[in-house]
C-alpha cells in the first residue's frame, strides 16, 4: 500500500493539477470558510438578536427592529422574573429533570447489564418490548395516555411526568449500556464473586464505576430530552403552578403579544440554561447526543 502511494506521489510531483494551483486553492478556501460560516451565523444570530432586543423598549423596537439597545433597559428581565415568575417554571423543569436523570441512569444500567450479561427466560420478550418504543410515537397515543394518567391519579402533580419520561428515555439508554457492558470482561465479576462479594454489591461497586463513561453520555441525552419535553407536560398539567418551562412559554406568548422585546426576554431566559450548559460542555454534549442517536 505505502509503496503504491509513494509511486503515485512521485508521479504527481511532475504534473501540477488544478487543486494545487494557488488561486483556485484560495478561492476554494474562501468558499469553504464562507458557506458554513454564513450558515453558522444564521444559527446563532436569531439568539443574539433575541438577547440584545431583550434590553430594548417596545417603542424603540417598533422604530427599528434590528438596532442595538441604546442603553441597558432591564425592565423586561425584571418583569420576566417578578411578574411572570419564570423562576418557578425553571425550578419545575429542573426538579423533574433531576429525578428523571437519577431514575434513567439507575434503571438503564440495571436493564442494560442484565440483558447484556445473562441469558434468561424472558430476555427476548423484555428486549422486544423495550424496542417497541422506537415505533410508537407518543404524540400519536396522547389521548389514551391522558386517560390513563387521570385514572391512576397522576394528573397535575409535580411528579406527574417523571415516570413517562423515564420510560421514554429508557430504550436508548438501555441499549447504550448493553453494548457497553458487552465490552467489559465478565472476569471482573467472577473475581469479585470468588472474593465473596454479593451480587448486588458487585453490581454497584464494581460494575457501575466501569460504566461511568456511558452513563455520562446517557445523562447528557436524557437531560436535553427531559428539559425540552413537551407532549407529556401538555396533557398532564392543568395548573399553571406545575407548568414546565416549555409549557409556560406557550402561555406567555399568547398573552403579551404586543410587547415583542418582553416576549424575547422570556424566550431568552428559557434558552439560557441550555445555552450555558452547551457553551461549557459542547464537545461532550455533541458526542453524547450523537451516540444516543445512532445506537438508539
Amino acid at each position: 500500500m505505502s509503496e503504491h502511494v509513494k509511486s503515485i506521489n512521485s508521479v504527481s510531483k511532475k504534473r501540477h493539477n488544478n487543486a494545487e494551483r494557488p488561486i483556485v486553492k484560495l478561492f476554494a478556501r474562501i468558499l469553504l470558510y464562507a458557506i458554513p460560516g454564513i450558515y453558522a451565523i444564521t444559527c446563532i444570530f436569531p439568539i443574539v438578536w433575541l438577547f440584545y432586543t431583550s434590553f430594548r423598549t417596545k417603542t424603540q423596537f417598533s422604530k427599528n427592529v434590528l438596532a442595538l439597545p441604546e442603553y441597558l433597559y432591564l425592565e423586561n428581565f425584571k418583569y420576566v422574573f417578578t411578574e411572570l415568575n419564570v423562576g418557578r417554571y425553571l425550578f419545575n423543569s429542573a426538579r423533574i429533570t433531576f429525578f428523571v436523570l437519577v431514575l434513567v441512569l439507575l434503571f438503564s444500567f440495571i436493564n442494560g447489564y442484565f440483558i447484556s450479561r445473562f441469558r434468561f427466560r424472558f430476555r427476548n420478550i423484555l428486549y422486544a418490548t423495550y424496542m417497541c418504543n422506537l415505533f410508537i410515537p407518543i404524540h400519536a397515543v396522547l389521548v389514551p395516555t391522558y386517560i390513563l394518567i387521570v385514572k391512576v391519579g397522576l394528573q397535575d402533580k409535580w411528579y406527574s411526568i417523571i415516570l413517562p419520561i423515564v420510560c421514554m428515555e429508557l430504550t436508548t439508554a438501555t441499549f447504550l449500556v448493553q453494548s457497553y457492558i458487552a465490552t467489559v470482561p465478565p472476569q471482573l465479576e467472577e473475581a469479585a464473586a470468588i472474593d465473596g462479594s454479593s451480587f448486588t454489591r458487585t453490581l454497584f461497586t464494581i460494575i457501575l464505576p466501569t460504566a461511568k463513561p456511558i452513563l455520562v453520555t446517557i445523562g447528557i441525552i436524557t437531560f436535553f430530552h427531559c428539559w425540552n419535553e413537551f407532549a407529556y407536560s401538555l396533557i398532564a398539567y392543568q395548573n399553571e403552578k406545575n407548568f414546565t418551562i416549555s409549557l409556560a412559554l406557550m402561555r406567555f406568548k399568547g398573552e403579551y403579544f404586543t410587547d415583542y422585546p418582553r416576549i424575547m426576554a422570556t424566550i431568552f431566559v428559557c434558552i439560557m440554561p441550555a445555552l450555558i450548559l452547551y457553551s461549557l460542555f459542547s464537545q461532550q454534549i455533541i458526542k453524547g447526543m450523537m451516540a444516543g442517536a445512532i445506537k438508539g
Binding site: 392543568q238 395548573n239 402561555r251 399568547g254
Partner: peptide, 15 residues
Amino acid sequence: ETRNATDYNDNILKL
C-alpha cells in the same frame, strides 16, 4: 385555584 389560560376551552373538554 387552578389557573389555566392557555386553550382553556380545549382543556375543560379534556378534563
